Simulated scan of single mutants.
Amino acid sequence: MYSLLLMAHSVLRWLVLLTLLYALFRGIRGWSGQRPFTRTDNTVRHNTATFAHLQLLIGYTLYYISPLIAAFRYGGAAEPAFPLRFFGWIHPLLMTVVVVLITIGSSAAKRQTTDAAKFRTMTIWFSLALLMLLVAIPWPFSPLAQRPYLRLF
């Protein structure tokens, strides 16, 4: 089960990133071009938040069943190695903040009265989330912790 969840978490990372980028593209285009906030824009906004929440749920599940995190929690070392600290508290904390930013942006955009305000709100909050997301993902080239682009069994 652990390897299946790890694979799902790895694949879903790309879905979250792509929907967030697409939502930002639509937000910037709508905000700068005075376009109407269409049903498609609303669906993209909603799907971005839904995929982020699903990713967070899988991430929390992995956190509690991961042998890596168990080594961090119960290792007893005075100063654990940085990758253990990254996955033990930095990654979960930053990703939780990312999902909170996406949720606030999605919810606030939905409640705006004008189309320009919806696009502006979505763009600002999702941009903040994207910046933090790019830092918190363990890219293969990251100085924080390295993981492959895609983890398949």
Rank of each mutant, 00 (worst) to 15 (best):
H46P: 00
H46L: 14
H46W: 11
N47F: 10
N47D: 05
T48D: 02
T48H: 07
A49L: 12
A49W: 06
T50Q: 04
A52E: 03
A52Q: 02
A52C: 03
A52H: 01
H53G: 11
H53M: 05
L54R: 00
L56Q: 08
L56A: 12
L56T: 05
L56W: 11
L57A: 14
L57Q: 00
G59R: 11
Y60T: 04
T61R: 09
T61W: 13
T61M: 13
T61S: 15
L62R: 07
L62F: 03
L62Y: 05
Y64N: 10
Y64K: 01
Y64I: 10
I65Y: 10
I65S: 03
S66E: 09
L68R: 13
L68N: 04
L68V: 11
L68G: 02
I69Y: 03
A71M: 03
A71Y: 00
F72Q: 00
F72E: 02
Y74L: 14
G75V: 07
G75D: 08
G76F: 07
G76H: 11
G76P: 04
G76Y: 08
E79N: 13
E79D: 12
P80V: 02
A81S: 13
A81Q: 12
F82C: 01
F82M: 11
F82A: 08
L84T: 02
R85N: 06
R85L: 03
R85I: 12
R85W: 00
F87T: 11
G88S: 08
W89F: 15
W89Y: 15
W89L: 13
W89N: 09
I90C: 01
I90L: 15
I90A: 10
H91S: 11
H91I: 09
H91Q: 11
P92G: 09
L93K: 10
L93E: 09
L93D: 06
L93R: 10
L94S: 12
L94N: 03
L94V: 09
M95G: 04
T96M: 04
V97T: 15
V97A: 15
V99W: 09
V99Y: 08
V99I: 09
V100Q: 06
L101V: 01
L101N: 03
I102Q: 10
T103K: 09
I104D: 00
I104E: 01
G105S: 05
S106Q: 15
S106K: 03
S106C: 10
S106R: 14
S106A: 15
S107R: 13
S107D: 06
A108P: 00
A108T: 05
A108V: 02
A108R: 15
A109E: 10
K110W: 03
K110E: 11
R111W: 01
Q112A: 15
Q112M: 14
Q112N: 04
T114F: 00
T114G: 01
D115N: 13
D115W: 07
A116D: 12
A116E: 13
A117T: 02
A117G: 11
F119Q: 05
F119V: 04
R120L: 10
T121N: 01
T121E: 02
T121C: 07
M122N: 13
T123A: 15
T123F: 03
T123E: 02
I124M: 08
I124W: 11
W125T: 02
W125Y: 14
F126C: 04
S127I: 02
S127T: 15
